[in-house]
């Protein structure tokens, strides 16, 4: 048979072209979209924030590298998922916390959140949230010490949600505006107590808008999540019904970061758009319940983890209608 210059041609299955989209590209894009929020935090809470972020990323990458080497698997560090997990863990610890805290959080996130399940694609729970929940359970004091914004010496500035909750539970019948000294503008720009990443809502939304524009995340989960929290807060959070300060609930705490960057995680969320809507509503309801009546001021991480567990169930029952099946 005649061959071109004696070389065997390659035969593989169609399609013979590819969109060029890769897991690596997606992970690094999400990473860069998260960076503005980090820069804002460095500005608001001081340079020590940068070291926390770096130590968390180092922890994640080192853990992943060690695990791949021990398991004799191909190195997956460069796919960016470990770096992203590290960054998200850093965004979930308070500013001014010791460097080892973030490092340990990342270690747990990668090892117990990802590697033990078989690596990227096989984990059930969001690794970064596993890291955060581990830290919350093990070091509750360190994890709830909030420095005041723009004033690194004052170490005890409670988060808006905590103020709101305490004020409410003491039956202090003050309106939200009077009770909290934060304006919506401060909340929006990030001048308030809180974890590193969740501070600046504006930066988070800008990054998320880019991701949605690039279709790296879909709007379904964040929209249904935030809307549900807002409705829940409006109905139940005020005196009586239907006069809760829902804007405060949206802008404070980790809701924006959770809704756009954690609940939208491909691996641990539902795969269909309809499933994502259900997932978001479930997250919203659980967040609302924890925030208003639970033991913690914040419920985003637990609500997402609980809904992660429900993901296989949602995927099983929410499937698209097959073409030609009337």
């Amino acid at each position: 048979m005649s061959k071109i210059a004696g070389i065997n041609l390659k035969v593989s299955s169609s399609p013979h072209i590819h969109s060029g989209e890769t897991t690596t590209k997606i992970m690094w894009t999400v990473f860069f979209c998260l960076l503005p929020s980090g820069f804002m935090s460095i500005y608001i809470f001081g340079l020590s924030t940068l070291w926390i972020i770096l130590s968390a990323i180092l922890g994640a990458v080192a853990t992943e590298w060690c695990c791949c080497t021990v398991q004799k698997k191909a190195l997956t560090v460069s796919d960016g998922s470990a770096v992203l997990t590290g960054l998200l863990v850093a965004y979930n610890v308070p500013p001014q916390s010791p460097l080892w805290l973030a490092f340990l959080g990342s270690f747990v996130a990668i090892l117990f959140g990802k590697i033990v399940f078989g690596g990227l694609g096989f984990n059930i729970f969001n690794p970064a949230l596993i890291g955060r929940v581990f830290l919350m359970a093990s070091f509750p004091v360190l994890m709830t010490r909030w420095p005041a914004p723009l004033n690194v010496d004052a170490v005890t500035a409670p988060t808006p949600l905590a103020i709101f909750k305490d004020g409410f539970s003491q039956n202090n019948m003050l309106s939200a505006g009077e009770m909290i000294n934060f304006s919506y503008r401060d909340l929006f720009l990030g001048f308030r107590g809180g974890c590193i990443g969740e501070a600046c809502v504006l930066a988070l939304i800008l990054g998320a808008a880019f991701l949605i524009y690039k279709k790296y995340i879909s709007w379904h989960t964040p929209l249904s999540y935030i809307t549900t929290v807002a409705v829940f807060a409006w109905v139940f959070a005020g005196e009586g019904f239907f006069n809760g300060d829902f804007l405060m609930h949206i802008l404070s705490g980790g809701l924006i970061m959770g809704a756009f960057y954690m609940a939208t995680d491909y691996v641990t969320g539902p795969i269909t758009k309809k499933g994502q809507l259900i997932f978001g509503i479930g997250c919203g309801i659980i967040t609302g319940i924890i925030r208003l009546w639970g033991g913690y001021p914040e419920g985003v991480s637990y609500s997402i983890l609980i809904m992660n567990a429900a993901t296989p169930l949602i995927d099983r029952f929410v499937v698209p209608k097959r073409f030609g099946n009337m």
Binding site: N8, L9, K10, V11, S12, S13
Partner: peptide, 22 residues
């Protein structure tokens, strides 16, 4: 001898689907 360079799945049942095997 090989007819061509097979680059598909590592499964015989798949390999025979392309031009009747390599």
């Amino acid at each position: 001898k090989n007819k061509f360079d097979y680059q598909g799945l590592e499964d015989c049942r798949s390999a025979v689907l392309y031009l009747g095997g390599h």
